[in-house]
Amino acid sequence: MSKLVLARILQGIPVLLIVVTATFFLVRAAPGGPFDAERSLPAEVVKNLEKRYNLDAPVLHQYVDYLGNLVRGDFGPSFRYPNRSVTELIRTGMPITFELAFYAIVVAVVVGVMSGLIAAVRPNSLQDYLPMSLAMTGICLPAFLLGPILVLIFGIWLEWLPVSGWGYSPGDKILPSVTLGSAYAAYIARLTRAGMLEVLSQDFIRTARAKGLSMPGVVFRHALRGGLAPVVAFSGPAVAGLLTGSFVVETIFQIPGLGRFYVQAAFNRDYTMIMGTTILLSCLIVILNIVVDILAVWMNPRLRKVR
């Protein structure tokens, strides 16, 4: 088992290196630079700035320097916020984005697994069609549409929940979490249903029923573990998607998270900031996928090595 973990971590290193390299050269290949503004600066000022940020050196040289700094854990200074480092900026935004993503994944898993189970127990009945139609709607509705709709219903008409903000009043975390989590809840519902239907048609389910187990006993004791395997496999990419996809939700609800920094950095050609957030998120994706792979092995005794 520890061998597997080590191997997977080692496999992650080249992936990250490729991501760093590709991002580094791509952002520099994009037209424009960090100091292009509507009002163009005097050439000398730009030259000074470029010298300060090491942008006048050859690109390859910059790349090697950047990698060197990266190994020491230094993401460099932000080009846009001159007095703050990228590390500082990430540190302010990250906890908020993580919290939002955490609530969203809780919503997604709880709602998704429950409705998938309900649907799978009685396939092709109302109990199946209702949650599955809802799930289809959830998948089709993008966050920028669902968010405002929820705000309209629960914030403006019913006045139950605040329409924006993060951490100012107790209820203001609900709408963003639901908005972000719903599409994933829908996917998880469909995956749960498919996984459970597959497992429930297996011979060992008949054995379990022949033992005298009730339907809930059969579902929870015998079917759930196998039935959730596809959900577990999906949850790695899903969490990554939640983290990177939180930008829209953060904008709608005025949340000062990482997503907004990320997009602004891309618009501003804030090279170091783009690099910093990209590396952070790719690290997370790599780690989450490793976690999910290990989880899948741990859940299935047949994959576990007998030492």
Partner: peptide, 16 residues
Amino acid sequence: ISMVFQDPMTSMNPYI
């Protein structure tokens, strides 16, 4: 009344 089924490979739960 208990039952024993045909294929013991698939009739036992692989996860338990």
